Simulated scan of single mutants.
Amino acid sequence: MQAGNISEHFLLMRMNRQPTYCAICNKADGGFNYGASCCNSCKMFFRRAAQHPNFPTHCKNTNSCVGCRFCRYQRCLAAGMVWKDPTPVMRDITPTIKHLAKLDNHRQNVFLNYVAMDNLTLDELIESNSVNYTLKQHGVQLDVFNWATLKHTTSVVFMKNFDFVPLLDSEDLKVYVKQMYKPFMMFCTAMRCYTNRRECAEFPEGLDILPQQLTSQFINCPEVLLKVRCPIVNRLKELNIIYEEFLMVTAIFICNPVSSKLSPNGQTIISRSQKKYASILMQYCLIKYQNSGPSRFSDLLSLFDTINNTAKNLDNVLIQSFGTFQPKRQKVFDDMMKAVLE
């Protein structure tokens, strides 16, 4: 069964299922687990029993007792519970997570420890085979524009390292990067701040992600800037997201085939990758959260709306400050402003 079908099946089951009781102990159930309606206690018992190497093979009492482990296990089997070891599925999921973690660790390492040397336009950054960095000297403090340049370059390089990118032609590559790199930057920034228990998005050392010459335009309406700094971090807190989930959501989010500027071939290539990562995330959620897996999958994907809305809020801030906000030298900022105003 494909991930999409799994999702639909479980969501319909959750919507249509009437309140029931545990088929093993007759207490109020905790959901549909291992093929039967059962409470969390019986679910955990069945999982331990199915994996126990020396589990009892007969009843010590009358073969129909209430309290012994053997009879309880037999009631689980009679209710239709079936143990399926998640290890083989996780064996398929784990390499993907490790690969994404490797890409992201490299992105974070460069962002936190290096300084970008090249002053490239966005097109040049996309077309470049490499970006020149120098190791950041101890005690050197970067300003908001230095941090933002690092965020731009490391985000674009991360996106270009996905395995489907060599299959895209040069025009599709530009469309792919340009439509997603800014919201992706905002997502990464929010995740780092959420991990560090910050209240809002900021650069390292507590530096505001918005330059002072821009924020000074909104002294009388600070709530406008809060809509840029805080929503994604707040949503991550609500979801209590973990790093593995962040990686898979990132991959699905980046692989966005919805753009009229993409060629049909480009849409097909990117869509194929998005479906692959969505399937992996669904399998992960079903294994980790079991009957709550589909709802967790849906909750994680709800991040897309938060990220996109926050990116639109940033665009609105840039549009309102047009003419007064002049980015510092870096060409990539000029490109970003042009894209917002198009």
Rank of each mutant, 00 (worst) to 15 (best):
D208L: 03
V157I: 13
Q213S: 10
V157Q: 12
K174M: 03
E171Y: 06
P222F: 13
L210T: 04
I232Y: 01
Y181G: 04
L168N: 10
K237T: 07
F164P: 04
V144K: 06
M185V: 04
T189S: 13
C221V: 11
V165Y: 14
D208Y: 04
E199A: 10
E171V: 06
V228W: 08
L225R: 09
N161K: 14
T154P: 01
T153D: 10
L214M: 14
L226F: 11
V156M: 13
C193D: 09
E245Y: 06
C193L: 06
I241K: 00
F187E: 01
F164V: 03
L214Y: 11
T149P: 01
L210A: 01
S170Q: 14
C200P: 02
T154D: 03
C188L: 08
S155L: 10
C188H: 08
Q217E: 14
M185N: 08
V156D: 10
V144C: 11
V228A: 02
A201H: 00
D169G: 04
V175C: 12
A201Y: 00
T153K: 08
F164L: 04
S155K: 07
R229V: 02
V165N: 01
C200R: 09
L168Y: 14
P204C: 08
F187V: 00
C221P: 00
L150S: 10
N234W: 02
E238R: 08
F187C: 01
F162V: 03
E223Q: 14
M191Y: 15
L225D: 06
M159S: 09
H152M: 14
S170V: 12
M180F: 05
I242L: 05
D208E: 04
E238P: 03
Q179Y: 05
F145K: 04
L207K: 13
Q217S: 12
P231A: 10
T153Q: 10
Q217F: 15
V177S: 03
A201W: 03
H152K: 06
M180W: 07
T154C: 09
R192P: 02
S170D: 13
N146F: 01
Y194H: 14
F145G: 00
C200F: 12
C188I: 02
T189P: 00
A148K: 05
A201P: 04
N240S: 14
E199Q: 11
E223A: 11
S216Y: 09
I241V: 15
E171G: 00
E223W: 12
I242R: 08
N146G: 07
N240H: 14
T149S: 11
F145S: 06
Y243W: 09
Q179N: 02
T153W: 12
V224S: 06
H152I: 14
F158Q: 07
P211H: 05
Y194I: 08
K174R: 15
L225C: 11
Y243A: 06
C188G: 02
K227L: 13
L239R: 01
F184L: 13
T215H: 03
